[in-house]
């Protein structure tokens, strides 16, 4: 026999992958055969259309237990009082929790509110959302424009900007805490350069700035990626037509790029808006809401009111979360409207 002859691969000893594939196939067909009789019997009874419900049922059950039911429970918590967890021990208080939350002489002056912490959190969140979303959209747009251009090692830079998105929020916060704390990297650099130590996380304004900065840093890659996709969806020949038309660069940007990117831009605005309202994890680890309540946002208020404080004011927290849900719902409807419009036009 010719020692150099290669035997056909399927008569040789199967590789691990082949054995796995074969095993998988056997298991799969076995399972399917086993499942067929009961499902066939069900289908005979309820018809082929009814089978849709059978297949959707597991998902719907999970959805109702873990999503729908908690939502209903949350409403019930919002309408009941006391620090008890069990429903039967909680007295019904109607809208008391809501009126306590909304009890303010002047909504712009937190000190005039009964729940000043809630309103501080609301004020902080509003400011945070405004600054963070503006910075997020502007920076991710600039990043996307740069990454969309003719750039050396473009793939590398795209990966670099997207990388923070892959990090766990806690990791993000710990990295930045390590940089910003009193004896952190940034202060070490400042002092090595002959500068003064700065209380980056203990001064209210600085610490607010860094919450915005870190959350933008962590999520910008995601929005830049969406915008990049939007930019690449703009036909290149429009830019060539504009070039032939002798259009200045800034005018190309404002008259062609921006209008055509607008649907994507709006999606980015709404998505980042919703996320900014929900901001919690990074900031909780980074500043803990401090100093004082300077960086305490609405979700942290809900968390602390319900779980962290010694008296668990579950009703108040549930009511606050419902108010936030309403705001988010409005924003979501807005986003759906916009993306629907984008599709039809």
């Amino acid at each position: 026999m010719n020692p150099n002859a290669h035997p056909p691969s399927d008569s040789a000893t199967p590789t691990a992958a082949q054995r796995f594939a074969r095993g998988f196939e056997l298991a799969y067909t076995g399972l399917m055969r086993a499942l067929e009789p009961p499902f066939a019997a069900i289908q005979k009874r309820i018809g082929i259309k009814g089978m849709a419900y059978v297949f959707v049922a597991p998902n719907m059950i999970i959805f109702s237990v873990f999503v729908a039911l908690p939502m209903i429970l949350n409403i019930w918590y919002a309408l009941t009082g006391s620090n008890r967890l069990m429903m039967e021990e909680r007295p019904f208080v109607g809208l008391d929790n809501f009126s306590a939350l909304l009890d303010c002489k002047d909504y712009l002056d937190v000190n005039s509110c009964k729940q000043d912490r809630f309103w501080r959190a609301v004020h902080n969140s509003v400011l945070f959302v405004a600054l963070q979303v503006t910075a997020m959209v502007a920076l991710s747009l600039v990043t996307a424009l740069i990454l969309n251009g003719k750039l050396r090692a473009r793939g590398f830079f795209r990966a670099v900007f997207f990388f923070p998105v892959l990090l766990s929020p806690v990791v993000v916060a710990l990295i930045w805490k390590w940089i910003l704390q009193r004896d952190g990297l940034l202060n070490a650099l400042l002092m090595a350069g002959g500068g003064e130590r700065v209380a980056f996380l203990h001064d209210a304004s600085w610490s607010f700035f860094w919450t915005v900065f870190v959350s933008v840093w962590a999520h910008m890659g995601f929005y830049a990626l969406i915008l990049l996709a939007g930019l690449q969806a703009i036909p290149a020949d429009l830019y060539e037509a504009a070039e032939m038309d002798g259009t200045p660069k800034w005018r190309v940007f404002w008259r062609i790029t921006v209008p055509l990117l607008l649907p994507t831009l709006l999606v980015v605005v709404i998505l980042s808006l919703i996320r900014a309202v929900q901001a919690f994890d990074e900031i909780y680890v980074l500043t803990g809401g401090g100093p004082g309540t300077a960086t305490q946002f609405i979700v942290q208020y809900i968390y602390e009111t319900a779980f962290a404080n010694q008296v668990h004011l579950l009703g108040l927290a549930a009511a606050a979360s419902l108010l936030v849900a309403v705001v988010l719902m409005v924003l979501t409807v807005l986003q759906l409207r916009i993306s629907y419009h984008g599709k039809t036009s």
Partner: peptide, 9 residues
Amino acid sequence: KALWGSVGG
């Protein structure tokens, strides 16, 4: 303030 200010609540 670096100690008490580093957290909230």
